[in-house]
Amino acid sequence: MPKRRKPTDNENAILLAEVENMCPLCAKSLMYEKGGKKHKIFEGAHIYPLNPTEEEKELLKDEEKLHGDVNNLDNFIALCRDCHKKFDNPRTVDDYRKLFSIKKNILSKNETRAKYHDYQIETEIKEVITVLVEEEFHEDTPNELELNALKLNEKANETLTKITKRRIRNEIREYYLYIQQQFIILDSQYPESFNRIALQVKLFYSILRKSESSQEVIYGQLTEWLSKKTGNSSLGACGIIISFFIQNCEVF
């Protein structure tokens, strides 16, 4: 029978960061300040139980596990004490699947983020992002793009939600020719910069596609990667840039 182990201080820091200091079930803050010090009010909860009862074994017999070793950090998640108690008593399949899904998404995101450092983007793209954020945009996109913008319909599959698809389509219609013009200006200052940037986006997209099938997730990961690689630039502006590359065929 495995012995319960307490996550180390470093592991607790990892668990806290994974859920961004909020209980993933009730959104309660997992730290509080008193006497000038930070104190934790969370526990590292086993997602699959450490020593399941016979009833729990039967209940979860067909469920996927995050790791073969229940004491591995992959099987832990930070919960506030109240939610931990409710999760354990009584244990249900629905609650298990909910926490399993949350942690699996965290692990997948962590795996992708570990690749951000290895895939570079030309620093000049920050100039295009800055223009989007800081300069006033006058909508003068020709109507001809209204028909052409709909390559997205041919590319998007059921893994891209309707709301994201609508946002991407609108961003293509509103910004595509404007961003294209900004890249032309960029190329006049830094020759071939657009081709290098396009290749870098396409390469990272191809890497993501090897391990992730959801277009929704890939769109979010590309947007975050571009933001992180350009000094935490505006996620909104970075999403517009990724929409440009969807229309331009480097993505999807």
Rank of each mutant, 00 (worst) to 15 (best):
A45W: 06
A198G: 09
K65M: 12
K229D: 01
I218C: 05
E11N: 08
E43G: 10
A13S: 14
Q221A: 10
I168H: 04
E58F: 03
E216S: 01
L222C: 07
K3C: 11
K162M: 12
E224V: 04
G35E: 08
I242W: 01
Y175W: 06
E124I: 03
T112G: 04
I129G: 03
I129T: 09
E192T: 03
E216N: 12
R4Y: 12
Y178G: 05
T112P: 00
M1G: 14
K104T: 07
E250T: 01
F194P: 02
S206D: 13
V217R: 06
L15W: 06
Y190T: 11
A237K: 07
E216Q: 15
K98L: 13
F244H: 13
N10L: 12
E54D: 15
S227P: 05
L152F: 07
L60W: 01
F244K: 05
I106K: 01
L50Y: 01
Q182S: 10
S108F: 04
C238T: 05
A237L: 05
A114K: 15
E174D: 13
T161V: 00
L150D: 11
Q189H: 12
A17I: 00
F42W: 00
H138V: 15
K229V: 01
E43T: 03
E11M: 06
I179S: 08
R173N: 09
L16V: 09
I184K: 13
F100R: 10
N21P: 08
F183S: 09
L235W: 10
V251K: 10
M22N: 12
K151H: 11
E192C: 02
N153S: 13
L79C: 03
E64D: 15
I163R: 12
R209T: 06
L15F: 08
N153A: 14
R91D: 04
L79T: 02
P52K: 04
L203I: 10
R5N: 13
